[in-house]
Simulated assay, not measured.
Amino acid sequence: MEISILPISSIHKDQLIRAGYTSLESLVVVSPYRLAQELNILQEEALHIVKEALKYSGAGGVQTGRSFFKGCQSAWEMLEEEKILNYISTGCEDFDDILGGGISCKEVTEVGGVPGIGKTQLGIQLAINVQVPLAYGGLGGKAVYIDTEGSFMPERAYQVAEACIMDTLDKFAFHKDFEICKEVMQPKFFLSNIIYFRICSYTEQISVINNLHKFLEERKDVKVVIIDSITFHFRRDFKDMLRRTRVLADMSQN
């Protein structure tokens, strides 16, 4: 949950974001004394902020019994989940084999490398490949593409969609549902299922990531979220490395 919901002054909210506290979860674990030092405010003010964070996050009460252990599961359940885990193909069989089947769903995959190595190309490819119908071995889902650098090109996405469609139809030309799936296998249909966010600042990025779960609750058919890239605005706008690390860690947890 975002700190924007807290009934505190806008000045304190801005100080919290600049100090790296972008979510209630990051606030409830810090001491008022430390918070007062980091924000350069009175300890009474810091105590008020922490109390409000505890209240709104629901961490102020005592959890007992089953509610506390709601997220637990057995090792057998974990193994069964791994067996039915879905993968998004990268479009390259050798690359999929290296990754153990492709890009794994329900996990975070970080792709790094120097400029021009193909990170954006891979992101666009995954946003297209995740839409391949179930009958053709895909996931039949939609994609969320969060673009912080302005590097997403719809023209390139159209080309990738055309190539993906051609390759898929050639491979499954004799499938019993070929004619039905052929109707939806159109570039326009693929591009319509890429939900695009253009991010222009680190505060905007924090807000989108913190509220993404609400957005996805209404769109159960989204099967992949691509952020290209997660560190762009933080390389330019953050001088304090400790604060930057904290903000990125919170974002990774979300």
Rank of each mutant, 00 (worst) to 15 (best):
F172G: 02
E155R: 13
R236T: 12
T203S: 14
L216H: 09
D250R: 05
K188H: 06
V224T: 00
L216K: 06
N210Y: 13
G137M: 01
N193R: 10
V225N: 04
T245R: 15
R236N: 12
S252E: 13
Q121N: 08
A173F: 07
E149P: 12
T231A: 04
D170S: 09
I124R: 00
G141Q: 09
F232T: 06
L139R: 04
K223D: 04
D228L: 03
K171N: 12
T203N: 14
L212I: 10
K171V: 01
F190H: 08
A173K: 11
V132F: 05
V160S: 00
V208P: 14
H233P: 14
D237N: 15
R246P: 09
M153S: 13
Y202E: 10
D237Q: 12
V224I: 15
F234T: 07
C181S: 07
D170L: 09
V130S: 03
V208A: 04
K188P: 04
V132K: 03
K142E: 15
I227Q: 01
T168M: 00
C181H: 09
R156W: 02
E179D: 11
E155L: 14
N193Y: 07
V132Q: 03
R219Q: 12
T168L: 02
E218D: 14
D221I: 09
F189I: 06
T245M: 15
F232G: 04
A249H: 02
G140I: 06
Q186K: 06
A127H: 02
L242G: 13
T168C: 05
S207K: 10
S207P: 10
A249M: 14
L122P: 01
A127P: 03
Q253H: 13
N211C: 11
F215G: 01
T120D: 07
Q159H: 10
I128G: 04
V144L: 06
R156D: 03
K182Q: 12
C200Q: 14
